[in-house]
Amino acid sequence: MKIFRNPDVMWREEDEYKSRAYEGLEKGEDVEKIGTSVLYLNGMMLSLNILGTEIWKRCEGSMLDEIVSELAGIFDVEPIVLKKDAEAFIAELKEKGYVRYG
């Protein structure tokens, strides 16, 4: 199943938060609560952390496994855990109307 961003969603990366998050990541800090991008749909804002942002950027027709294997090269997380997290995250985006399956 391919995953596509809803074209109605407007979004941008938040450069300052992003550099703060990557610096933190290098130092081994917990950066889970730093929003590095914002999504905007129907007057609603959603902020994604570093992992969420990297998943979101890849929702351009990729399959879950493809996304996970790319991310495994960036984040130092067990592939099984990564897959579980990514799956749950994408399901939540789907429920909120931010992505579609194709």
Binding site: M10, E14, D15, E16, Y17, K33, I34, G35, V38, Y40, M45, L46, S47, L48, N49, G52, F89, E92, L93
Partner: peptide, 15 residues
């Protein structure tokens, strides 16, 4: 995905 601490985007999203 929505529990960022005190998140303020760096600029308005819309004008």
């Amino acid at each position: 995905m929505s529990d960022m601490d005190d998140f303020l985007p760096g600029a308005p999203l819309t004008i």
